[in-house]
Design a protein around this nucleic acid. Structure first.
Lengths: 186, 186
DNA sequence: GTCTATAGGAAGATAGAC
DNA sequence: GTCTATCTTCCTATAGAC
């Protein structure tokens, strides 16, 4: 204890992220966030003077970095399109805990947030992901328009399979998505 | 004013439903619900002694009736599978306001509600919708297993296209879904 | 950097008049 | 059946000790 951090920065962000993904922005109360991180509310305010909104913003930025490093990067690498997709698929599976964890982009899209401080970041991440998929599809021989349509469809399938997994109480829909994703895109 | 209802029951349910779909369960505060319906909080409690939870439950039940009447019913009717799908598609387009309105099943799936009073109803509605789609696919010649997989995929696509429409700020993904849905299923 | 304690306000819910 | 007024609880945020 004392002057030294009781929780590492990336572990802190991970736990905050999990809370926002499980409960949404309004559902993730400061008490809940405190319990999830093992810190007291006042300690959270020390690290995030902007309060809950800043926490969510930084979680979103961390997700953006994760997306760049583990999804967009690998998708841009050279090599067989199918292999690039496979490399990404494993990371995505991990990230969504095999379908048991919701997507932050969905959970932060509700209500006032819709034209709030998260809207631009969410839109940008969706667009970047779609563009990266479309590029892979084009490398596999699809024309520009078809590639874009397929890419958007795969993202919709992913999001929908996560919604369905939560609603049905089983990760099966997400598993099905992961298995079919390469074929859908290529 | 006085002793007579200032808002009709179905209009009341529609407005409550819209509020829950726009803001989610936690985001739809009683003040917001009061403003959305034109009633005061105390008036809402008169009609829903169980408070917000009862409101959400009854909205969910109304959605269940709507699903039965405008989706499951038409899908079960006799006739060309493609025609049955088309009849339903128009209603779905209306219901989701062309992609501008989120799905209640997604918006009520977060947080504590996950094993709360809505989970069973949500699961049941997803299952019923999937089963109805699967039956149509089988009528169109698919075998049982393939029909079920395709049906689940179409539901995932629908949910995901709604998520994406919100995230991108344009109803285009949902429009694309509606156009491609029959081909996806048959 | 973390904590306890608390201020200030919004949220859910109720009482009682009309 | 709807309203104004109010109660209680919870939430966001801050103060100040260690």
């Amino acid at each position: 204890m004392g002057r030294t951090a009781s929780i590492q920065d990336d572990e802190l962000m991970t736990r905050l992220g999990t809370a926002f993904r499980d409960f949404g922005y309004q559902g993730a109360t400061l008490s809940l966030l405190a319990e999830a991180t093992g810190l007291q509310k006042a300690s959270l305010y020390h690290r995030f003077p902007g309060g809950k909104e800043q926490m969510a913003r930084e979680v979103l930025e961390a997700a953006q970095s994760w997306l760049e490093d583990h999804v967009l990067g690998p998708l841009r690498s050279s090599g067989d399109p199918a292999a690039r997709l496979a490399a990404m698929t494993n990371k995505v599976d991990e990230f969504y805990a095999g379908g048991r964890q919701a997507c932050l982009l969905n959970m932060l899209s509700s209500g006032r947030n819709i034209d709030g401080p998260f809207a631009a970041a969410i839109k940008g991440m969706f667009q970047a992901w779609i563009s990266a998929f479309a590029a892979v599809a084009m490398d596999a021989g699809a024309d520009k328009k078809a590639a874009r349509i397929r890419a958007q469809r795969v993202i919709a399938l992913m999001q929908g399979s996560l919604v369905l997994s939560r609603g049905l109480g089983t990760p099966q829909p997400f598993r099905d998505f992961l298995k079919s994703a390469p074929a859908e895109l290529l």
